[in-house]
């Protein structure tokens, strides 16, 4: 139980152990721990950043989708409007064409009628002239009575 030189031996051993630990054991392990700490912190930060980016991308995708939907709706409504317009135009044109045709037909009919009247008058006047010729025979000089005949023909018209 006595204190003796063992004490000195133990102290030397202890000093060597502490020196060795201080020099070769502690620094690398602490360095590794610190490095891992940084790595983990970096990883966590990167993960957070990634998540933030995903959120942004989702937001962007949503807005793009919304825009596209709006655009397509716009296009559809414009097309519908145009179609309606086309139909209206066609209707208008058809109506005009119909009216024009009708007008032309009426004009033709009028002309035909005038023509017929003219030719009928001529026919009638010549007929009347011949009949008067027949009746009067020599009594009427064609040149003398030209006035009267034409007046009569006019009255027939």
């Amino acid at each position: 139980m006595s204190i003796n030189a063992t004490l000195i031996g133990q102290m030397i051993t202890f000093t060597l152990l502490v020196w060795f630990t201080m020099k070769y054991v502690w620094p690398p392990i602490i360095a590794a721990l610190e490095e891992r700490k940084t790595k983990i912190a970096e990883g966590l930060a990167a993960a957070e950043k990634g998540q933030e980016e995903i959120r942004l991308a989702e937001k962007k995708a949503k807005s793009v989708l919304k825009e596209a939907k709006e655009q397509s709706a716009e296009i559809v409504s414009a097309a519908q409007k145009r179609a309606n317009q086309l139909v209206e135009e066609a209707k208008e044109q058809a109506k005009k064409e119909g009216e024009r045709l009708l007008e032309a037909a009426k004009a033709q009919i009028e002309q035909e009628m005038l023509h017929a009247k003219e030719s009928l008058r001529k026919e009638v006047s010549s007929l009347a002239l011949r009949a008067a010729e027949q009746i009067l025979k020599e009594e009427i000089d064609k040149a003398k009575h030209q006035d009267i005949i034409s007046k009569a023909a006019e009255q027939l018209g």
Binding site: T6, T21, V25, P28, K39
Partner: peptide, 25 residues
């Protein structure tokens, strides 16, 4: 006392030294 404390100290040093050498993050 001397033998066992040196022996155990050696165990301690060996273990920690081998870890310190291969310490990775």
């Amino acid at each position: 006392t001397l033998f066992f404390s040196v022996f155990l100290g050696g165990l301690f040093i060996l273990f920690f030294k081998s870890v310190a050498e291969r310490a990775t993050s």
